[in-house]
Amino acid sequence: MRALRADLMLAVTVVIVAAIYLHTDAGLPTARIGDPLGPKAFPALVGGGLTLSAILLLLETWNKRRALADTRVDPHSPEAPKGDDKHLYLVMLAMVVWTAVYYFVFETVGYLLATPVFLFGLLSYFNPRKHLTNVLVAGGFTAVVYLLFSILLGVPLPAGPLPL
């Protein structure tokens, strides 16, 4: 049942996104120089397709729900929410925020300073209590990647304030 509710929410979200997409498309200028369709026609079809697939998803969800009702399964018993799930979502959210912070300072602080701190932070959580290994992995990885990209491949990574 949880999966069905998620699908329902997905369908609604897609309809909203498709509406925004189609609205933006309608606001585009009609430039039809040497081209009978102009830039608006194709996105309009894509937006229509998005909406149609959301409707199809609603139909599928409806059918599944009926099938479930037919088999008379108690809707509450099979998928009890797991206590771990909430914790896991929080961990993911924290990871996304931590990664975003890393990307935010990527150029200003520089690759060589930001990366070991970013990796050490992650490692301290995912590989706990092994500080020496974590320091070595964070430092070693940064050095190897920097050398590989900047020197071997000639693809410079941002140095930041370091005089490199």
Partner: peptide
């Protein structure tokens, strides 16, 4: 289908080569 259309919608982002109009 949903995934395909999301991909197609993403493909329409950017300057349209034929008309030069920036889209989305």
């Amino acid at each position: 289908l949903l995934a395909t259309f999301i991909g197609l919608a993403l493909a329409t982002v950017g300057i349209d080569l034929q008309s030069g109009v920036p889209r989305f």
